[in-house]
């Protein structure tokens, strides 16, 4: 695989955005490009992540694209997923070797609608969604499964039942660059040594909710178990999920979990996963770590998980 690194990152989290999507995205895109010393015409590929259901209107990614100023026309794509998967798509595109840079961004105004109910629409539309189980109830189901597994210490038991996350609006942008270009543009690029994502069944009843099998498979393919990360940024809006993830990732006590505060303090839906990658990359770039782990999740009860390993290279 070609060497690809995160060379800059910008995020904006607000309790309640007054901005429209383009106004929300523009500052992070401009800041990320500025930190990389690039202008929009220097970017080879652009990819974004968002969900129409957050604003209740179709095609919300279309208006947000104005923030990039895509003129002359650009090579661009969008995933209806957390921005971490947009970063994955950009990483794949950079492997082709014909371009050296990519811009990735994500945005979400999660506070506009009843997000707890909106997320119920991710479930099976015939068997589960019509019952409208809210997001916290589903997370509680998972916490219960973990509590009943008998694997938890008393202190972890307490941790597993913490408050639901604080929902915020936000946007984030990351610039990726390959090999030598990354070294030229950034004094210490955070190279992606491995990245992989896996999905599980949508049927909650067929999964052992106290384990995250997909995280484990993704971690294996991302080379996580051969590395010793100093930090791990985990996309775990609910505290029980953090315990399940630490377990799946075999993270020992030496690893500092969520030094940024994580998604429990600031859950910007569709953005939080990309922020984890940006935060982990920043720890590498600013020399706090030689290796850091980032994780992103999608779907109820950690249904889909992405692992991205970041490291410094000589």
């Amino acid at each position: 695989m070609r060497d690809v690194a995160v060379i800059s990152f910008s995020q904006l989290l607000v309790d309640k955005a007054e901005a429209n999507d383009a106004e929300l995205v523009m500052p992070v895109v401009r800041e990320a490009l500025g930190r990389a010393g690039l202008q929009k015409q220097d970017i080879g590929f652009t990819c974004s992540g968002s969900s129409d259901f957050l604003t209740g209107m179709p095609f919300s990614f279309v208006g947000a694209l104005d923030a990039v100023g895509p003129w002359p026309p650009i090579e661009e794509s969008h995933v209806e997923m957390d921005g971490a998967w947009a970063l994955y798509e950009a990483w794949v595109r950079l492997q082709h070797g014909d371009i050296d840079t990519a811009l990735v961004y994500a945005f979400g105004r999660s506070t506009l609608g009843p997000i707890e109910d909106i997320l119920a629409l991710q479930l099976d539309p015939y068997y589960e969604a019509p019952m409208w189980p809210d997001a916290t109830s589903l997370a509680a189901l998972q916490a219960r499964a973990l509590l009943d597994s008998g694997r938890l210490s008393d202190s972890d038991k307490k941790k597993a039942t913490a408050e639901p996350p604080k929902i915020v609006d936000g946007a984030a942008a990351v610039v990726l660059a390959s090999g030598d270009r990354a070294r030229k543009l950034c004094s210490r690029p955070a190279f992606i040594s491995g990245i992989d994502h896996r999905i599980e069944s949508h049927l909650l009843g067929v999964r052992d909710l106290s384990h995250s099998v997909s995280t484990e498979i993704a971690a294996k393919h991302a080379g996580c178990f051969e590395k010793s990360p100093t930090f791990a940024e985990l996309h775990a809006p609910y505290s029980a999920q953090e315990l399940i993830l630490c377990d799946a990732l075999k993270l020992d006590k030496q690893v500092t979990i969520n030094p940024s505060g994580g998604a429990q303090n600031n859950n910007a839906v569709m953005v939080a996963g990309l922020i984890r990658i940006g935060e982990a990359a920043t720890r590498v770039s600013n020399r706090e770590a030689d290796c850091a782990l980032a994780h992103a999740s999608s779907g109820p009860c950690l249904q889909q998980n992405l692992i991205c390993m970041l490291e410094a290279r000589a």
């Binding site: 259901f53 209806e80 539309p125 999905i199 999608s298 779907g299 109820p300």
Partner: peptide, 9 residues
Amino acid sequence: VMMPELYLA
């Protein structure tokens, strides 16, 4: 259906 890839996996 929000993000139907989840349900269709």
